[in-house]
Each structure stands twice: as C-alpha cells, then as structure tokens.
C-alpha cells in the first residue's frame, strides 16, 4: 500500500497533465503547477537547511579534522538567514513608511545586501571565472588524444575561435577568391549553420524521445526506483 498509492498519484497526476494540454480550459494548469512547485521547493528549504546544519553541527561536535570550517559555514549560514528573514537594517518602502516590513529584503545598504555584494557575488564570479583555466586544460587534453573525433572537435573549436575574433580575418583574409569560402569567418558561419545545426537537431530529437519514454515509464510504474523501498 505504501508504494501503491504514490504510484497511483504519479500516474493520475501525469496523465491528467497530458490530457489537460489538449483542452483549452485546462491548458493553464501547467503554469499553475509550476507556481505550486516553486512554493513546495521553498518549503523544502527547511529540509535542506536543516540537513546543512545537522551535517556541520555533527562535524563540529565530533571534532573531525577540519571542523573549524564547519563552524565558519554554520556562522555564515545563521547570520545570513537571520538578517535576511528578519529584514534587519532594512528601511520600510518609501511609499509605505508606516509598514515596518514593507522594505525590500535586499535593499542597498542593508547588512544582507552587504554580504551579498561583497561576499556572495565576488565568490560566485571568481568560481565562474576559473573556467578560463579549465577550458585551456581541457583543450590541451583533447589535443593530446590523437583520435579522429578529438581532432575534429578541436579543429572546429579552433576555427570558430578564429572566426569570432579579429585573428580570423587577419590570418585568412588574403585567401584568393577561388577559396574565399575557407576564410575563417565564412567557415565559422558554415560550420555553425550546417554542422552545428544538424548535430543539435538530431540530439534534440533524441532528447525529446528519451524524455517521452522516461516519463511514460514513470507514469506507467515501470520505473519506480525514485519511490524508495516502501519500507519505513
């Protein structure tokens, strides 16, 4: 029973959504459940946040090596959560000064904004920027793998890179008219509109088929591993 009911819920919910897609009166249900999901995901933060605290509190109390970092995480988490939920240091909205809670939680100048601006944002941007190094090392690795697939990948990447920067026209602009089509920027546009389009098209069709098949298997209960064992 503990497994049958969820299976039935998934099946009914899924097929209702499929049928609703064809009925003008119910076609907007898709948008409604997306909002519901957002609410549900926000409620589920309690589980995630609780787990985060639990993991790091346990590390701290067990004094596992590096437990000091767990203390830092807990302190950062609790401070950010309290000043954010409490709107600490946030002025009311100028339009509604008599409502103390009406200000924006991320108002400029508030402690929450400060932590976002000077801690969150730089960290986020720096991690993202590390990709520049990883792109280089990945290209280097592909370069060493001497099979035809890797060569195709790297050669295409190189041509596109040339075509999208000033280096392309500078290096290949002198090509005579007969092989004009091989100039880096022309080749780039050809590669993008022909090969890239063809490959992506087939991949997208495959993804759509895969999505449909996985969804159907879940709705029919063929695939049910996500529901757990049915035990407590």
């Amino acid at each position: 029973m503990k497994r049958q009911i969820p299976l039935l819920i998934a099946m009914i919910a899924g097929f209702v959504m499929i049928v609703a897609y064809f009925i003008p009166y119910t076609v907007s249900w898709g948008d409604t459940v997306i909002v519901w999901f957002d609410v549900l995901a926000a409620i589920a933060f309690v589980l995630g946040g609780g787990n985060l605290l639990k993991v790091h509190l346990k590390k701290t109390s067990d004094q596992v090596p590096g437990w000091g970092y767990s203390v830092i995480t807990i302190v950062a988490f609790v401070i950010m959560l309290v000043i954010g939920l409490g709107k600490i240091g946030v002025n009311p909205a100028a339009k509604y000064p008599e409502f103390a809670w009406s200000g924006k939680f991320s108002e400029m100048g508030s402690p929450f904004w400060w932590l976002y601006e000077y801690v969150f944002k730089p960290l986020q941007a720096t991690i993202f920027s590390m990709l520049a190094f990883y792109v280089a090392s990945a290209a280097f690795r592909a370069f060493r793998a001497k099979n035809i697939e890797a060569i195709l990948l790297l050669a295409t990447a190189f041509i596109i890179l040339l075509g999208r920067t000033a280096a392309g026209p500078a290096l290949t602009g002198w090509f005579p008219d007969a092989i004009e089509g091989l100039e880096a920027d022309k080749l780039t546009s050809y590669l993008m509109t022909v090969f890239n389009t063809a490959g992506n098209r087939a991949i997208m069709i495959g993804i759509a088929l895969g999505t449909a098949s996985v969804s159907l298997k879940i709705l029919l209960g063929v695939e049910r591993s996500y529901l757990g064992s049915g035990e407590e």
Binding site: G206, I207, L209, G210, K217
Partner: peptide, 10 residues
C-alpha cells in the same frame, strides 16, 4: 549523449 543518458537506466 542526450538520448543515451535517458536510456541508461533501462
């Protein structure tokens, strides 16, 4: 790649 990923579980 794409569809292969969805086929993996099967």
């Amino acid at each position: 790649i794409g569809e292969e990923f969805f086929a993996a579980s099967a």
